[in-house]
């Protein structure tokens, strides 16, 4: 019987050697600013988590009655805007580069799923604001949820349920998916250019 720990370590190191996980060079074709939209998306997510932790520390009602609380809510609000702003730019860039080529399909898939789960994270956030916007989104959204049977289990009008989805379940899912996505990117490396016409031997 071989040593399971040693085998796990060997396969992890083989899949992602340290110099590939944290490379200090990139291929020469990485020369455009469209490559940084992933990093700015990650940074926006970081500020979402930080401002979210501050808001969570004081509870969901705090920001309505505290100037400091409202400021951190504003940080959270603009971080959401920045997050989707950069995530969509990142998606555009990867699409136009056809970044799924060369065995990078799973990288694209995890990114696209992260986008979809992020929609849910943002949606439950809008429902957790405790203001008219939340009330309106809840009563409007319920018909869509009920129309396909989801509303029977995922009740937009249940603040407690939406709040726990927003502050725990969905952020954890986004963070986990992002981690897998980043490891996939590091494992496969950035996608090489599309070959120019006339090259295909």
């Amino acid at each position: 019987m071989s040593n399971l720990t040693a085998r796990l370590r060997a396969s992890l190191v083989a899949a992602l050697p340290p110099e590939q996980l944290l490379p200090d060079s990139q291929p020469e074709y990485v020369r455009s600013y469209v490559y940084v939209f992933g990093a700015t998306t990650l940074a926006s997510f970081g500020f979402l988590i930080i401002s979210g932790i501050v808001l969570a520390l004081f509870g969901p009602g705090w920001w309505h009655v505290s100037r400091i609380g409202h400021f951190f809510n504003s940080i959270h609000f603009w971080s959401v805007q920045a997050f989707f702003f950069f995530m969509v730019l990142h998606l555009w860039a990867q699409f136009f580069m056809a970044a799924w080529r060369g065995g990078r399909g799973i990288t694209w898939l995890t990114g696209a799923v992260t986008f979809v789960v992020s929609l849910g994270a943002a949606f439950t956030g809008y429902l957790s604001q405790q203001n008219f916007d939340s009330q309106w989104i809840a009563v409007q959204g319920k018909d869509a949820m009920n129309a396909i049977g989801i509303g029977a289990y995922f009740n937009l009008l249940n603040f407690g349920q939406m709040y726990t989805y927003h502050v725990f379940l969905l952020p954890v899912a986004v963070a986990a998916l992002t981690t897998v996505h980043l490891l996939q990117v590091r494992r496969r490396g950035v996608v090489p250019p599309i070959p120019p016409r006339g090259l295909g031997g």
Binding site: Q26, P27, V30, G102, V191, P192, P193, P195, L199
Partner: peptide, 13 residues
């Protein structure tokens, strides 16, 4: 072909 097969120089990054 799907990807440009020509080798690329590594640039410090």
């Amino acid at each position: 072909p799907d990807v440009d097969p020509r080798p690329a120089r590594a640039v410090p990054y």
